[in-house]
Simulated assay, not measured.
Amino acid sequence: MNPNRSLHKLLRIIFSEVLMEYFDISGWHDDSSKIEVWLDEKNYMERFDYKSGTVISSGFIDEKVIQEFPLRGKAVYLHVVSNYDIR
């Protein structure tokens, strides 16, 4: 099996179902000291938010980097890209 595909499957298991419901894994990088994962928000909006107008699609906004719990002694960084603004 392709090692890239294997790591992608593993990350889907490690991250919560809620995270995987709203985000796609668009890339990752693994080296001796850290694991970085890029998450792109899916183009999905709750019906309530859509009707109330509190959330609007505005294209991609600045990436946010979140440090997650370490895995196997390596720092984990999530690069999150969102395409919604909350009003």
Results as ranks from 00 to 15, higher is better:
residue 68 E to A: 11
residue 31 D to L: 03
residue 82 S to N: 12
residue 53 G to F: 07
residue 78 L to K: 03
residue 45 M to Q: 12
residue 69 F to Y: 15
residue 64 K to M: 07
residue 42 K to P: 01
residue 39 L to M: 09
residue 19 L to T: 11
residue 6 S to E: 15
residue 28 W to A: 08
residue 82 S to R: 13
residue 7 L to S: 07
residue 87 R to D: 14
residue 33 S to A: 14
residue 56 I to M: 13
residue 70 P to G: 04
residue 14 I to S: 00
residue 11 L to P: 00
residue 23 F to L: 03
residue 20 M to N: 12
residue 69 F to G: 13
residue 84 Y to D: 05
residue 83 N to W: 05
residue 23 F to P: 00
residue 7 L to H: 08
residue 50 Y to G: 03
residue 83 N to I: 07
residue 51 K to V: 15
residue 55 V to R: 14
residue 47 R to S: 08
residue 72 R to K: 13
residue 10 L to F: 09
residue 11 L to A: 01
residue 23 F to R: 03
residue 22 Y to S: 05
residue 87 R to L: 15
residue 31 D to Q: 04
residue 29 H to M: 13
residue 48 F to P: 01
residue 26 S to F: 01
residue 41 E to M: 09
residue 44 Y to I: 15
residue 12 R to C: 09
residue 1 M to C: 06
residue 6 S to G: 09
residue 59 G to Q: 01
residue 35 I to W: 02
residue 16 S to I: 04
residue 72 R to S: 13
residue 2 N to Q: 09
residue 7 L to T: 14
residue 51 K to S: 14
residue 36 E to W: 06
residue 24 D to R: 10
residue 71 L to K: 01
residue 33 S to C: 12
residue 41 E to L: 05
residue 53 G to V: 04
residue 66 I to Q: 06
residue 3 P to G: 02
residue 75 A to D: 13
residue 21 E to D: 13
residue 11 L to N: 02
residue 4 N to M: 13
residue 76 V to C: 02
residue 22 Y to G: 03
residue 2 N to T: 12
residue 67 Q to Y: 03
residue 18 V to C: 07
residue 84 Y to W: 03
residue 86 I to E: 10
residue 62 D to K: 12
residue 30 D to S: 10
residue 12 R to Y: 14
residue 53 G to Y: 06
residue 71 L to S: 01
residue 23 F to C: 00
residue 75 A to Q: 10
residue 35 I to P: 00
residue 13 I to N: 03
residue 26 S to T: 14
residue 16 S to R: 05
residue 12 R to D: 06
residue 55 V to Y: 11
residue 17 E to C: 07
residue 83 N to F: 05
residue 42 K to Y: 01
residue 19 L to I: 13
residue 77 Y to M: 02
residue 6 S to H: 12
residue 87 R to T: 15
residue 81 V to N: 07
residue 35 I to S: 00
residue 36 E to L: 06
residue 58 S to C: 15
residue 2 N to C: 05
residue 58 S to V: 15
residue 26 S to A: 08
residue 46 E to V: 12
residue 7 L to I: 15
residue 75 A to M: 10
residue 42 K to H: 00
residue 50 Y to K: 11
residue 7 L to C: 07
residue 28 W to P: 03
residue 45 M to V: 12
residue 70 P to S: 12
residue 2 N to I: 12
residue 34 K to M: 15
residue 9 K to C: 05
residue 84 Y to H: 05
residue 44 Y to A: 08
residue 13 I to Q: 04
residue 87 R to C: 13
residue 6 S to V: 15
residue 76 V to R: 04
residue 38 W to K: 11
residue 17 E to G: 08
residue 8 H to V: 11
residue 16 S to P: 06
residue 84 Y to E: 09
residue 73 G to Q: 03
residue 46 E to W: 09
residue 20 M to F: 05
residue 53 G to T: 04
residue 47 R to H: 10
residue 4 N to F: 14
residue 70 P to M: 07
residue 37 V to F: 03
residue 24 D to E: 11
residue 61 I to M: 05
residue 44 Y to G: 04
residue 66 I to A: 03
residue 6 S to P: 02
residue 65 V to C: 00
residue 42 K to F: 01
residue 49 D to S: 09
residue 63 E to A: 01
residue 40 D to S: 08
residue 10 L to H: 05
residue 78 L to G: 01
residue 27 G to P: 02
residue 21 E to A: 10
residue 43 N to G: 06
residue 10 L to Y: 08
residue 49 D to N: 10
residue 15 F to I: 09
residue 3 P to R: 08
residue 81 V to E: 05
residue 50 Y to Q: 10
residue 37 V to M: 00
residue 64 K to W: 04
residue 82 S to M: 09
residue 12 R to G: 06
